[in-house]
Nucleic acid binder design. Structure first.
Lengths: 196, 196, 196, 196
DNA sequence: CATGAATGAGATTTCATTCAT
DNA sequence: AATGAATGAAATCTCATTCAT
C-alpha cells in the first residue's frame, strides 16, 4: 500500500535479518545450537516464528550464516593488516590487540566457533570455511614471525596461537564459572615475550 | 536365598553402567550433549532405552556422572604427584607428559569438559566440581613454579596452562578438520622452555 | 500488520482450548486421570498431540484448569443465590433442584472431582480450591437451615449434604453398573423432608 | 533343601500373598490403580518385582483379587446378620455400627471400590461382583425396613444407603483435605432417625 | 521360591517446520 | 511481509512383564 522504495525494503530486510542473527548468536553461544529453539529465538527477537523462515531456509542455514559472518570478521583483520604500514613487530602488536579485542567484543562468536570446532559433526558446509580460516590465521602469523627473524617461524606461530587461544579459552570458561581471569596481565606477557 | 548371588548382580550392574557411560561419553563428546539422544546411546551400547534409566535417573544425571568421572581423573594425577619423589623440575616434566598423555588417551573427556565450560547453562551441580578442578590444577602448578624459583609463579602457571590447553584445543579442532597438528613438537617446546 | 487479526487468533485459541478441555474432561471422568493419555485426548479431539501443549503446559496443568472450571460452576450457583429474593425455604428448593440439575448435566465434572477427592495425592494446587469449595458449600446451606429455624443447622447441613452426595454417588455408580436408580423419587423425598 | 511340610509352604505362600495384597491395597487406594507401579508395590512390600508375578498373574489380577476380598467382607456382614437373633431394629443398629466400623477400619477398601465405581471401564470381571454386592446390600436393608413396618421400605433403604455412603464420602474426602468431619455425630443422627 | 537386570511398548513432552490468512 | 495455530517426528522417560540363574 504505502509506497516504499526498493531500497527501503531492502534496508528493512537487512535490519530484520541482522536482528535475528544477533539474537540467535547470543542464544546459540549461551545454550548451544541444539539446545536453542526457534521459538526462543523468535521470542527474544520479538518477532514470530514464521518470520524467521522468511529470512533463513532453516535453523541450520541460520547457524551457517552466523558462522560465516564470524569467520569473515577474521578476514577483515587480515585485510586491514595487508594494507598496513610498519614493521612486523608493530603489526604483531596490532594483531594481538585487535584479536583479543575482537574476541572480547564478540565472545559469543568465539564461543560458538570453538564449540563447533570441538564437535565431530560440524556441518560439512562449515568445515571448508573453518579450515580456510585456520590456515589463513596460521599463514598470517607465520609470515610475521618470519619477518621478525625467528629461527622456526612456524613453530612460533603455533605457540603464539596456542597461547592466545588458551588464554581466551581459560578466560571464557572461568568467567562462566564465576572465577577471575587475568586477561590483561596475560596480554602484557605476550607483548613482553615478543618485545612488542 | 537368592539364586543369583549379590556378587553376580553387582558385576552385571557394574558392567552395564560402565558400558553405558563409555558409549555416552563417546557420543556426548562427538556430537554434543543435546544432540545425542538416549536412543542413540542405547543403540550404540546395544541395549534397550529403558535399561539406561535403570542406572541413571535421567539423561542429565548420566552426563553428571560422566563429568564427575572425568574430573576425578585429574584428582588421580594430583594424588600421584603428592606422593612423588624428586625435584620440582622432574615433577613438572612428569605432569606435563602425563597431562598430555591423559588428554590424548581421553580426548573425549577433555572435549566434553571443554564444551561444557563454554556453555552458560552448565548444570549447577557440575559448576562446583568444575570450579574445584580448575582451582586445584592452578594451585598445583603454581606450587611447582614457586619451587622452581620463578619470580611470578602465578603468572607462569597461567601461561603454562594456557599453552597446554591451547595446544590441545588446536590439536582437537584441527584433527576434526582433517588438518595436521605438531603436538609432539609443541611438547618438546614446553620441555625446552622450562628446561625439563 | 498481521494478516490474521488478533480477534481471529483469539477465537481459534478459545475454540481449541475449549475443545481440548471438553474432551479431556470426558475422558478423565470416564477412565480416570492417570489412565487417560494425551494421545487419546488428541485423537478424541481430532487434533495433534503437540497442539495440546500449545494450550496447556502439561497434562497436570490441563487437569488443573478443568478442575478449576468445575469448581467455578459452584461459585455460579452461590452467586445467583446471593442475589435471589424469597424465603430460605424457596432458596433451599432452588438450590436442591439446581444442584441436582447441574450435577446431572455435568456428571463428568462431579465424577472427576469426587475421584480426585478420594485420592491422597491431589495436586497441592487443587487442594486449596477443593477445600474452599467444600467450605463454601457447607457455609451456604448452614445459613439456609439457620434461617429456616433448625435447632442444629450445622448438623442439618451435614445431613443434607450427605444425602445429596450419597444420592448422586449411588446414581453414578449404579448407572455405571447398568442398574436403575430412582433419582427423581429421591429428590421428592428431600423436598418432603424439608417441606420445600 | 530343608524339609518343609506342604502345610508350611502353603502357609508361607498365604502370608506372602496377603502381604502383597495389603501393600497394594494401601497404594491403590492412596494413589490410584494406574498411578501405582509394580515396582512401588514390591519396594513397599520389601520383596522383588518378580515375586509378585509368582502370586498374581498380572497387575490387573492383583486388583481383581483385592476387590473380591473387599466385596467378600460385606458378605461376611450379611452372613452374620442371617444367623443373628433379635428385632429388626436391633439388627439395623448392628448393621449400621458394623458398616461404619468396617469402613473406618478399611477406608482403603472403601476408597478403592468407590473410585472404581466412578469409572466407566471397571474391569468387566469386576462388574458382576460389584453389581451383586450392591443388590445384596439393598435387599438386606429393604428387608429390615419392611420388618420395621416402613410404608415404603424400598425408598427408605435408598435413603439410608445414600445417607451412609454420603457420610463416608464426605468423611474420606474431607479427611483428605485436612478438614474435620463429625462422623460420630452423624452416626448418632442415624440412630435417632430410626430409633435404634 | 526369589531376584532384579533387561526389554519394549507406550506415555509425556519438545520443536522444526508449514500454512492459511 | 508477518502471524501464530497446527502438525508430526522424534526426544525423554515409565512401567508391566519376562527370564536367566
Amino acid at each position: 500500500m504505502s509506497p516504499k522504495s526498493k531500497e527501503q525494503f531492502d534496508e528493512m530486510r537487512q535490519k530484520s535479518r541482522a536482528k535475528i542473527m544477533e539474537v540467535a548468536l547470543e542464544l546459540f553461544a549461551q545454550r548451544g545450537y541444539h539446545h536453542t529453539s526457534i521459538s526462543q529465538i523468535a521470542k527474544a527477537a520479538d518477532i514470530s516464528k514464521g518470520l524467521i523462515y522468511n529470512y533463513f531456509e532453516s535453523k541450520e542455514a541460520l547457524l551457517r550464516d552466523i558462522v560465516m559472518e564470524a569467520v569473515s570478521q577474521f578476514d577483515d583483520i587480515e585485510a586491514v593488516l595487508q594494507s598496513m604500514e610498519g614493521t612486523a613487530t608493530q603489526k604483531l602488536r596490532w594483531v594481538t590487540e585487535t584479536a583479543i579485542e575482537t574476541v572480547l567484543k564478540d565472545v559469543k562468536h568465539w564461543r560458538l566457533l570453538t564449540s563447533l570446532g570441538l564437535q565431530t559433526d560440524v556441518l560439512t558446509s562449515l568445515k571448508e570455511a573453518l579450515r580456510t580460516k585456520t590456515e589463513n590465521a596460521f599463514a598470517l602469523s607465520i609470515a610475521l614471525f618470519k619477518e621478525m627473524g625467528f629461527d622456526n617461524p612456524k613453530q612460533e606461530a603455533y605457540i603464539y596461537g596456542a597461547l592466545l587461544d588458551g588464554m581466551v579459552l581459560h578466560y571464557v570458561s572461568m568467567t562462566q564459572l564465576d572465577m577471575e581471569y587475568p586477561l590483561e596481565e596475560m596480554k602484557q606477557f605476550i607483548f613482553k615475550r615478543y618485545n612488542l
